[in-house]
């Protein structure tokens, strides 16, 4: 109940700040682009759109939202109600998941994308959104200014995006398999390429592990810097 109230509030908050309009425009543009592309490029383009924008939107936005809330001392007033820290954080994560998945769903519907491995694909889209949002939260907990957040986020964003080179088949190393993004790029690419079941399972396990690690760090950082700032 508390969680539901918090999720609803975060979605309304994002709506009032124009996120849904911005992503509606982007979604329409992406659909048009995908429709115009030759058949053979549709799936790879979809993978890149989801990887770099739709699933990464939490990463991009969360810093500003947390900073704005902190600037208005809102966490302070939330944490003197029975609302628990994990509920606060889950609300942030679920609200972005909702926007990402709604946008991804519309794009796939509008561009007539589908296929056999849809379950793996959807799981990949959900997990990449979660992981990106968590990465954003980890850095937002301590950032002082939006620009400060961007620097940190851009640095880490570029770093974890390195497996894109493997995806483009320009450069590969086993080291990339440590990155969560290697796994998301496999799952977001299942409609395009036939991956072996072991590759898919590896990706799922890798993303679940990353999810728990990042959740733990996020919780600790928020507990220390936002709920109990000293």
């Amino acid at each position: 109940m508390r969680l539901l109230a918090a999720v609803a509030q975060d979605i309304r908050f994002q709506f009032r700040h124009g996120f849904y309009y911005a992503y509606l425009v982007l979604t329409v543009l992406y659909i048009i682009t995908l429709r115009l592309l030759p058949e053979s490029l549709v799936h790879p383009a979809l993978t890149l759109i989801l990887f770099t924008d739709i699933c990464a939107l939490g990463f991009f936005f969360i810093g500003a939202i947390v900073l704005l809330e902190r600037g208005q001392n809102l966490p302070q007033s939330l944490f003197v109600t029975p609302l628990r820290l994990h509920e606060y954080l889950l609300a942030k994560i679920f609200s972005f998941l909702f926007l990402s998945i709604a946008s991804a769903f519309l794009i796939m519907l509008g561009a007539f994308v589908g296929g056999q491995d849809l379950i793996w694909f959807i799981f990949g889209a959900i997990m990449s959104t979660l992981i990106y949002t968590l990465f954003g939260l980890v850095f937002a907990a301590r950032a002082r200014h939006v620009n400060d957040y961007f620097v940190k986020a851009l640095g880490i964003g570029l770093l974890i995006s390195l497996p894109i080179f493997a995806y483009l088949r320009l450069f590969d190393t086993p080291l990339f398999y440590v990155f969560p993004t290697r796994a998301t790029l496999i799952l977001l690419d299942v409609l395009n390429v036939d991956y072996s079941i072991s590759e898919k399972l590896f990706s799922v396990v890798s993303l679940v592990i990353w999810f728990f690690i990042l959740s733990g760090i996020t919780y600790q950082r928020f507990d220390k810097h936002v709920r109990h700032p000293a």
Partner: peptide, 22 residues
């Protein structure tokens, strides 16, 4: 708190109703 901390894009009623849900 001393500095009022409220959701500025929401109405007075919306703010109160939101916090009441917890």
């Amino acid at each position: 708190f001393e500095t009022p901390n409220l959701y500025s894009k929401f109405t007075a009623l919306e703010n109160l109703e939101f916090f009441a849900q917890f």
